[in-house]
């Protein structure tokens, strides 16, 4: 019965991805993005990567989607303006053509080049110990650098959005 599960998950992923881009309210679009990402986590679980599925749910749905939601809701009416007002897209049809062309080209090329699609090896279970060992041993340097880059990104983000109260020209001639 995994075929039905795969079909259902793909339908959820694609439909909610379209909804995320097409919803009138940006808040609902964000929730649609979250549903789509949960669907991708389900696909990871179908592929035997339970740890990655949990990581995906924790990081994407728990952090990224909530961060976007908070940003939209907190700054929605900053100084009387609305952050999520938008006009109808003018390049909508061009976008659909370009996207369909790219998707068809990629899928068609892969399927034409590999007419015999490989079948997954059976009875395979990723051992979490192996994953941790390769993460720490083979890719240890990359892990440390990733931590440093994440720290730099967080500091950079905070610096960008910080409001300098002292720099306001209160005592100047303006």
């Amino acid at each position: 019965m995994p075929d039905m599960i795969f079909l259902a998950l793909s339908a959820v992923v694609v439909a909610s991805a379209v909804f995320a881009l097409e919803a009138k309210e940006l808040i609902y679009g964000t929730i649609g993005l979250g549903v789509s990402l949960v669907g991708v986590a389900g696909l990871f679980m179908l592929l035997g990567a339970e740890y990655l599925a949990m990581f995906q749910v924790a990081v994407y749905v728990g952090a990224v989607v909530v961060l976007i939601l908070f940003t939209i809701m907190l700054v929605r009416r900053e100084s009387g303006r609305i952050v999520d007002e938008e006009e109808p897209a003018s390049f909508g049809s061009v976008g659909i053509y370009v996207a369909a062309l790219v998707a068809l080209a990629v899928a068609g090329a892969v399927i034409l080049l590999a007419p015999v699609s490989p079948v997954a090896p059976e009875f395979y279970q990723v051992q979490l110990q192996d994953l941790g060992r390769s993460l720490a041993a083979s890719y240890g340097v990359a892990l440390v650098i990733l931590g440093l880059v994440i720290g730099a990104a967080v500091v950079g983000g905070l610096t960008l959005v910080k409001i300098d109260r002292e720099e306001k020209p209160s005592g100047t001639t303006e």
């Binding site: 995994p2 075929d3 795969f6 793909s10 992923v13 694609v14 991805a17 379209v18 995320a20 881009l21 940006l26 679009g29 696909l43 592929l47 976007i68 940003t71 939209i72 999520d84 938008e86 006009e87 897209a89 003018s90 390049f91 909508g92 061009v94 976008g95 659909i96 370009v98 996207a99 369909a100 790219v102 998707a103 068809l104 990629v106 899928a107 892969v110 399927i111 590999a114 699609s117 490989p118 079948v119 997954a120």
Partner: peptide, 30 residues
């Protein structure tokens, strides 16, 4: 277990949706 090509088709569809959003949407959050 479904063949590998079904996953490739799904991910191409997601790529297409993403490119459509990049080309046609005007809101930076989208």
């Amino acid at each position: 277990m479904e063949p590998l090509s079904s996953y490739i088709i799904l991910s191409s569809a997601m790529l297409g949706i993403g490119i459509y959003g990049l080309v046609s949407k005007r809101n930076a959050i989208r």
